[in-house]
Nucleic acid binder design. Structure first.
Length: 260
DNA sequence: ATGCCTTGTCGCACAAGA
């Protein structure tokens, strides 16, 4: 099963690009972030015509996540537990079943958290604590688990072309990195880190200042696998070429192949 | 330096992103 994650930065602006990529990359399941659309305006038919079931959790203007799947999506849940007052659409979970087993898939758009020392940074850290709690619960279920999305965390200095440029950014704060590391400590495997020894492996390049041309990127889109999922990991990759296409998202797709 | 781009918004500039 090929599972991918992609922050598309606006589904309506990216629909043609997304359909081209789906045809080229042929994933079975796709986690989308920053759809920037309410559910009723999501271009569901375009993806259904491409052969995918669609589940969305959108909001107006910002944020918003969705899961596409060639197989039916079961037990869909929206919202990250732990704060009933949180109105931001950043999390959706579903189960995908095949003849050889089922996989639980969590699709997330973790808060950016800038600027530092603001409510936004506190919200990011609180959100990461809620995520840790949820992942702990899901791991205990022992169904293969994939937690995929835009984590807005640069885990290590080697995950940025210019780590010094991110010193005062929420994406690279010790608190953000520690919270990410706690997910690893729970038993989750960073799929790209586990399979890709090459340096300068990034998933985001800013639109500004020629970041793409200079390969001035960061790795912030991740796929974390529970032990049961990691045991089935066959391959992982980054569809970097999409950043060079017409009208690109500033993020590129990350994918894994699981033996299920 | 703070903007450099890009998207969405009941646009005629602004917020938010990272």
């Amino acid at each position: 099963m090929k599972i991918a994650t992609w922050n598309i930065n606006g589904v309506k602006a990216r629909i043609e690009t997304a359909l081209t990529w789906l045809k080229e990359s042929s994933p079975d399941v796709v986690c989308l972030q920053e759809i920037k659309s309410v559910d009723k305006n999501f271009p569901r038919e375009a993806f259904e015509d491409a052969g995918y079931h669609v589940e969305t959790h959108g909001q107006k203007g910002f944020n918003g996540v969705a899961i596409l799947s060639r197989m039916p999506l079961e037990d869909v849940t929206r919202r990250l537990p732990g704060n009933p007052h949180d109105e931001q659409a950043r999390y959706i979970e579903a189960t995908v079943s095949t003849d050889s087993g089922a996989v639980r898939i969590a699709c997330l758009y973790l808060p950016n958290g800038n600027p530092l020392a603001s409510e936004k940074f506190d919200y990011k850290l609180a959100w990461m604590q809620r995520l840790e709690n949820r992942v702990q619960e899901l791991i205990a279920d022992e169904m293969p688990l994939v937690v995929a999305g835009d984590f807005n965390v640069i885990p290590m200095p080697q995950d940025a072309k210019r780590p010094d440029a991110w010193t005062n950014d929420a994406l690279f704060q010790p608190e953000s990195r520690t919270a990410f590391r706690r997910l690893i400590t729970l038993g989750m495997t960073d799929a790209i880190r586990a399979t890709t020894p090459e340096p300068e492996t990034y998933t985001f390049w800013d639109y500004q200042a020629g970041a793409w041309q200079k390969n001035d990127g960061i790795r912030i889109d991740h796929m974390l696998l529970s032990p049961e999922a990691a045991d089935r990991l066959e391959a992982a990759g980054i569809d970097k070429q999409t950043r060079g296409w017409e009208k690109p998202s500033d993020h590129v797709p990350v994918w894994i192949e699981l033996a299920v």
